[in-house]
């Protein structure tokens, strides 16, 4: 991993509702209105195909809209 994403990208520390904090790639960037404390949601993002041609997805986090 690491060469499969175009820079710049944003890494965030996500505090899960159940308590633990994890690091994740975000779909939003800090220069696009993302701020510390924003509520986030998990999303699946297309991540190419494997050697057998099967499409892969990757879990990232995105800014949640109000009410999500």
């Amino acid at each position: 991993m690491g060469k499969d994403i175009e820079a710049p990208f944003t890494i965030g520390l996500i505090v899960l509702d159940d308590g633990p904090a994890i690091s994740s790639t975000l779909t939003n960037r800090t220069d696009e209105g993302l701020a510390i404390g924003d509520r986030m949601k998990s999303v699946l993002v297309a991540a190419g195909t494997d050697q057998a041609g099967i499409e892969m997805v990757e879990l990232r986090f995105a800014k949640a809209e109000a009410g999500e």
Binding site: M1, I11, L13, S23, S24, T25, E58, L59
Partner: peptide, 21 residues
């Protein structure tokens, strides 16, 4: 087993995030 960040985050980025927080 891929994690959610992989080599996209090198150690100094991890600690830069902690500094920001």
């Amino acid at each position: 087993m891929r994690d959610l960040v992989g080599s996209r985050m090198v150690p100094f980025t991890h600690f830069a995030l902690l500094a920001q927080e």
